[in-house]
C-alpha cells in the first residue's frame, strides 16, 4: 500500500532515492520511478522536493514527470488494471475489452475510480503476444480475456 507523504518522509525518501543512484541527477527518471513506487504517484510537493535536492530546475522535473508514461501525477487506485494495446492484442480485440472495462468501471483509460479502487490504463505491448488480449491487474497476468469476463473479474477484485 502506498505510503502517505509527510514533510519528513518526503525529505528522507528523496534523499535515499538519490543516494541509490549515486546522487546523480542524470538518473532522474529512475529516482522518480522509485519515489512513485513508494507513494503511488508523484505529488506536487514530492516533485518540488526532488527539484530542491537534485538542483534540477522544477520546470525540467515537471516536464519529465508529465512526459513519460510511467509517471502519474494523480493518486492511483488500489488496483491498477492495465490493458495491453499491443498490436497482437489489438488484432485479437483488446479494444473491446478496454471499452467494456471503461463501461463497467465508469472511467476512461488513464483515470482512477472515485472510490480509489481501480486505475485503468493501457500499456504498450507487454510482450506476451501469444496470450492476447492481455489484462494485468497489479502485476497478475490474465490471458485471452474477453469482454464477457470483465464484469466478474472486476467483481472478484471489488470483493477482496
Amino acid at each position: 500500500m502506498a505510503e502517505v507523504a509527510t514533510v519528513e518522509n518526503l525529505e528522507q525518501n528523496v534523499r535515499e532515492a538519490m543516494a541509490r543512484y549515486g546522487n546523480n541527477p542524470a538518473r532522474m527518471i529512475e529516482i522518480l520511478q522509485d519515489l512513485q513506487d513508494i507513494y503511488g504517484y508523484l505529488s506536487k510537493d514530492l516533485l518540488k522536493e526532488v527539484s530542491r535536492q537534485t538542483e534540477v530546475p522544477l520546470a525540467r522535473v515537471y516536464h519529465i514527470a508529465t512526459f513519460f508514461k510511467a509517471f502519474t501525477l494523480k493518486p492511483r487506485g488500489k488496483y491498477t488494471i492495465q490493458v495491453c494495446t499491443g498490436t497482437a492484442c489489438h488484432v485479437k480485440g483488446s479494444y473491446r475489452v478496454l471499452e467494456r472495462l471503461e463501461d463497467v468501471l465508469g472511467v476512461r483509460a488513464g483515470d482512477t475510480t472515485d472510490d480509489l479502487m481501480f486505475t485503468l490504463e493501457t500499456v504498450n505491448c507487454v510482450g506476451a503476444c501469444a496470450l492476447g488480449p492481455v489484462v494485468i491487474i497489479n502485476g497478475k497476468y490474465y490471458g485471452h480475456v474477453t469482454p464477457v469476463q470483465v464484469e466478474s473479474l472486476i467483481k472478484e477484485y471489488r470483493e477482496r
Binding site: 546523480n24 541527477p25 542524470a26 538518473r27 532522474m28 527518471i29 529512475e30 522518480l32 520511478q33 534540477v56 525540467r60 516536464h63 519529465i64 512526459f67 513519460f68 508514461k69 510511467a70 509517471f71 504498450n124
Partner: peptide, 23 residues
C-alpha cells in the same frame, strides 16, 4: 538504466537524452 515508458526513446538521440536524465 530503466526507461520511463516512451516509444520515442528507442530513437538513439532521444534515448541518449533520457540516459542523461532529460526528456
Amino acid at each position: 538504466v530503466r526507461g520511463g515508458g516512451a516509444f520515442v526513446c528507442g530513437e538513439s538521440s532521444a534515448l541518449i537524452a533520457s540516459v542523461e536524465g532529460r526528456v
